[in-house]
Amino acid sequence: MPNTNVLIHKQNTARKRRVDQIMKAIFTFTALLSASFIIIIVGIIFVQGFRPFITDNHGLGPVNLWRFVTGDVWLIGNTFASNLYSVGYAIVSTLFIAFLSLLLAFPIGVLTALFIAKIAPKPLSKVLRTVIETLASIPSIVYGLFGSGVILQIVYDLSATFGYQSKGGNSILAVVLVLSLMSIPTITSISEVAIRSVDKAIIHGSLALGASQTQTHFKVVLASAKSGIFTAAILGIGRALGEATAVSLVAGGRRSGVSFHLLDSTSTLTSLMLEGIKETTGLDYDIRFSVGLVLMVVIFLTNLTLNAIKRRIGTVHVK
């Protein structure tokens, strides 16, 4: 009875097609959901972050936005009784600390990458690559603990020899050291990829022209890989700007004033968000969303600036 067979076959095909459509819809939905989270995050931080500026904050009155962004005292008056919050000084400290961390981590990271990719004998570069991968996989809280247990002590002793009274070692220097340690693996692994993908012909050309190995490495290889290396720097600075728990353990919680003295205590935007989180409510809690909003804007603007610089200098293309 060929007729029923055909019918069953047709029904089967129709069912299969329906299942296909349903599954495709589900897959599409999961992709859309995943992509929508970035919009949700930005939206929710904007809404929650702006709330303290436009609502009455349970009788405390709205926070002044301009004052919040430019002022140099975290809170004038008492907690729960004042709306005079500002993070201006923390914005400056955050950028200053990120810049110093990059200044320290960038050369070390790039040179390590050069060593692994071009100079070291194979077994050694294998070992170093594993070291870098391990460092990259260590969670930030462990770096914070290390900073708190070792680096603070070193900084404390250092400031004692200079006759400077530091807050138990909590200082800009300690934060910078912790952040550099954390960003070295990021910078190294991305730079290494860029360095390894430099065209062999360029290197051979340089050697043939009589340049020494080292000259070639520094003047040709690094220069050709500069676009990728710059990307590494951008990611490194991103990690430094956004790091929270590790920084909060070594920053010292400065409540007011910008200080560029390396041994002074400090506050970054992220450490302010974590300060006193265990025992607070009301505006003192909600204001953390505003700090988060400022942090997002700072990171966004930094990325924009760095990417603009990268486009201007990155004329040599790397495959």
Binding site: S34, A35, S36, F37, I38, I39, I40, I41, I44, I45, Q48, G238, L241, G242, E243, A244, T270, M273, L274, R288, F289, G292, L295, M296, I299, N303
Partner: peptide, 17 residues
């Protein structure tokens, strides 16, 4: 791009979300 951008968001911001 939207999904890739998520990797650049610091984890403390995820916490706020």
């Amino acid at each position: 791009t939207a999904i890739e951008t998520l990797t650049g968001v610091p984890s403390i911001i995820y916490g706020l979300m």
